[in-house]
Design a protein around this nucleic acid. Sequence first.
DNA 1: CAGTGGTCTAGACCACTGG
DNA 2: CAGTGGTCTAGACCACTGG
Lengths: 260, 260
Amino acid sequence: MVWICYNTSIRQVGPRYLNIASELRSKITGGSLGANQVLPSEAVLSTLYDASRITIRKALEVLRQEGYVDSRQGFGWLVVSPPLRQSLGRFSTIEDQLAEIGVHPRRKVLDSEIFWPSAEIAEILGNQEMLRVRRINLADELPFARVTVWLPSILARDFSLSDYERNSFYELLTTRKVIKRPLSKAVQTISAIAIAEEDARLLGVPVGSPALKCLRTTFDSAGEAILFSEYVFPGHLTEFVTELAGEILSIAPSGLRLVD
Amino acid sequence: MVWICYNTSIRQVGPRYLNIASELRSKITGGSLGANQVLPSEAVLSTLYDASRITIRKALEVLRQEGYVDSRQGFGWLVVSPPLRQSLGRFSTIEDQLAEIGVHPRRKVLDSEIFWPSAEIAEILGNQEMLRVRRINLADELPFARVTVWLPSILARDFSLSDYERNSFYELLTTRKVIKRPLSKAVQTISAIAIAEEDARLLGVPVGSPALKCLRTTFDSAGEAILFSEYVFPGHLTEFVTELAGEILSIAPSGLRLVD
DNA sequence: CAGTGGTCTAGACCACTGG
DNA sequence: CAGTGGTCTAGACCACTGG
């Protein structure tokens, strides 16, 4: 193929290596760089993009991280074949997915309560006044999740009920600058439960039908727990896609653990 | 604290940046570098370890990837506090977990069959003769998983039933050198189902009780699908732990998708 | 063998943090 | 302001792949 690079004099946005990564990524997603194809060597790319080899490598490392390419010493950089990347870096949010297929998402607040935390919640978020908000998520008016979020009430002083319907807590906390540090990581457990009576009513499914339950604790960049949330998803509507990489040592799914 | 670096003249094993990363990692895990503490600047580390700043940064990036440290421009590198790292890189296999708590794991082969693949399986593994093996996994004789594995029969020519009881397919395929390239990645979907009659009997749980079902496709390093496997775990016994990092944009768990 | 990616250096400029 | 991490350069040597 002919290698064209857009060495435009348009003002750069962001670092050089991210721009180069973007260009290469669109060559791959656009199909002009097929599976298992070998990329031009780092030296050649360096000339093409008029960037140092280290900058080129940094761009390639970004794409490696995203699962698009891989390298073999002494050989070159290869485009990873599609089945391997299908889900990688594509873990888009449920809202994005819905928007993509033209489905209208909506949040409905069930209730909101301020209270002194139970021992479990205090253990996670600290012994301070808590806000608990319960919501239903709908896709084209079909309920697909019941969500409960706990957070220290001091962080939610300026939020209204309509804020909770319009925005996720992530958006609210981040854009309103009520937290000092960005939310950076979360630990989540996924289990299977039988739907209880209230959730059955809210989600429009039979009592006892299978559901996925997720418990998630979200931390800021200093490792302080900021949010605790519970999600219940009807089993027939939802599934999780995960990718396992690196050394796979066991046929048993990693991340699995026995409880009790 | 006093910064000591072991600039020994002992022959280096592996790249410099990995050695430096190891030393820093053990300072953190060993406790001599506590949570939220600021590391010496890159320039200082560069002098201490007698390495270029780029090499120091590469070591720090490794530790960032592992979740031990994080950086703030204009400020420095910080040790991430423990709750954030707790689960990171610790997703040990179920077998390791069982061994750790002194539980005896066992595999029981239910049946093994060679057949021409259905359209679904052919779609994933190719249109060639397949082997299907069904097993039960037990922990101290308590069944906790029903596992079915499909793979091209040509790969399993030399395997016996007792091989299947003693080893995982990963172990068999890897150690017997029947595959050219190492297994490197897998894509897995997790969903909630109601237990069907046969699984109820095999796992000793009521029909209709909730369970986690995982479907996993395992690829070799060239992206060729080698194994397809199905796991059914009783809901009351098992859960998945995952970690979400990077930009968390949505309150909805990432990786979730709506089916149908 | 020539060519590749993996590692490493010494140096530079910038945006950003804190005081 | 001095000091920090983020980015980038030009150059070097090495281990490795394929023919």
